[in-house]
Amino acid sequence: MTLLSVENLRVTFPSDHGPVEVVRGLSFTLGRERLGIVGESGSGKSMTGRAVMGLVAPPGRVTADRLEFEGRDLRSLPEREFRALRGPRMSMVLQDPRYSLNPVIRIGAQIEEALAVHGNLTAKDRRTRMLDALNAVRIDDPERVARLYPHEVSGGMGQRVMIAMMVVLEPALMIADEPTSALDVSVRGQVLDILDDLVKRRGMGLMLISHDLNMVARWCDRILVMYRGEVVEELGAGALHQAQHPYTRGLIASLPRLDETRDRLPVLDRSLL
């Protein structure tokens, strides 16, 4: 079943030299699967996520021929109704928990507040749901963690807390914008595991935005490779070696391998693009 379908998505920002398109005619569909979006800085991958969430701040402008989520047209959706979708139906986690969690509000209260806005549960039910969500992201001692402030937990735990804040509302679509870039390699796997679990067990759709080609290739069902605001390549899982586009091939070639025999790693040659 298709959760999200996007056709010819464009995000434009005004600049001193006229409007600049940061996303240039992107099209894709997403079902209950793991879709990876990879690309370098400035390739428009984060803007794609924000555009879907309706969070591109003015003066940025979003246009599309089609932008449908669960059969609803997001383009003409009034802000009020869009806000009702954000959280319960679609949600987003950001890169760095140190900046994405509010430093002056306790973790438990931050998780609960979304429930207070979007539902009419009693305080007791909200608390139960909050603790369940912390459990779901494998936090062993949810009672204690709920009382902590964000600066009192580690980066990995902070990222799990952020995922819990999203999970507590059980959205159908998750957008994870570089969810592991700020984490140690050792906790990366753990966070990915949790996301994986949510996709499989709760049937969520996941858009994983990353610049880590290898990780996305290993872990997602499908990959979109973005370059300069456009999709240059769409690949199935594990089909990374079949990449055709010179940009993707250049990126793959520049990755070191375990059995490396080259003296110098090749640099991406942009003149070919």
Partner: peptide, 23 residues
């Protein structure tokens, strides 16, 4: 970022401005 994240969770402007930002 935490304001953007609060928006992504669909919190109302009132909650974002007065609870998250003002403090």
């Amino acid at each position: 970022d935490y304001i953007r994240f609060a928006k992504a969770r669909g919190l109302s402007d009132r909650v974002i401005n007065f609870r998250h930002a003002l403090k």
